[in-house]
Simulated assay, not measured.
Amino acid sequence: MLDNRSLSRMWDYADPRVSEGRLRAARDAAAAAEEPVERDELTTQVARALGLQGEYASAEAELAAISSDVPVVQVRVLLERGRIANSSSDRAGAVRRLLEAARLAREHGLTYLLVDALHMLAIADPAYSGLWTDQGIEIAQRADEQTQVWMIALSNNRGWDFFDAGDFAMARQYFEQAEQWADRMGTRRQQQLAREALAECDAAIRAAEPARDVRDY
């Protein structure tokens, strides 16, 4: 089974084409080493990279080539099909696949992937975004260190939920939480984004404060 830290190092979400090349090379290495589960997991990530480039048919073709009945592979296939459906504006199809991914991940103790599914459900099912994110936070904060990395993105996303609703005090609590987790285990980019979110929130709080009457002095 893939180590999620190692997988993260292959990814540059700002450049999915470069990521695709790394993932294909890693898949070739796994195939040469006769590691079929790792090969299939990496195939799902090749599909994800293709999807991020808008090449949905090619992404689906990669996923269709996987016939594994290993739970971790099945969950990853469902996750990527959910992402493709969401990017293709098929929210109902995305939610259906992501719910199944979450169910399977929970059933087989795949906590990292369970939180990934909840994170994606918050995107694909905006009416219940807060509910899905809160579930992800509840699981991630008590999980292993690899899964706790999700606390950065989940806390940040929940902060923006409250920010967009005009509840800047609650937003700030979540942005602070995101910053704490980013400082603990995040990348420099995540740390920077956490600080930028806090700064924007503080600016909104100041702007919302009632102006003082000069007669108060």
Score class of each variant (00 low, 15 high):
Gly51Ser: 09
Leu52Lys: 13
Arg91Gly: 09
Ala92Ile: 10
Ala47Asn: 10
Leu50Thr: 07
Val75Trp: 08
Val73Ser: 00
Val70Cys: 05
Ala65Val: 03
Gln45Glu: 15
Ser68Ala: 05
Asp40Val: 01
Pro71Leu: 04
Asp40Phe: 01
Ala59Asp: 02
Ala49Phe: 11
Pro71Ile: 08
Ala33Ser: 13
Ala85Val: 07
Val75Phe: 03
Asp40Gly: 05
Asp90Arg: 12
Leu42Lys: 06
Gly51Tyr: 06
Ala65Gly: 09
Pro36Ala: 02
Arg81Cys: 04
Leu52Ile: 00
Arg39Pro: 01
Ala47Trp: 04
Asp28Cys: 02
Leu78Gly: 01
Val37Trp: 03
Arg27Glu: 15
Gln74Leu: 04
Val77Gln: 02
Glu80Thr: 12
Arg81Ser: 08
Ala32Ile: 01
Val37Arg: 09
Thr43Pro: 01
Ser88Asp: 14
Ala65Arg: 12
Ala85Thr: 03
Arg27Leu: 09
Val70Ile: 13
Val70Trp: 04
Ser67Asp: 15
Ile84Glu: 09
Asp69Gly: 05
Gly54Asp: 02
Ser67Thr: 15
Val73Cys: 02
Ala64Cys: 11
Val77Asp: 00
Ala31Asn: 07
Gly82Cys: 02
Pro71Thr: 11
Glu62Ala: 07
Arg76Ile: 00
Glu41Leu: 13
Val70Ser: 05
Glu55Trp: 06
Ile66Tyr: 01
Ala85Leu: 07
Leu79Ala: 09
Ala61Asp: 09
Gln45Leu: 14
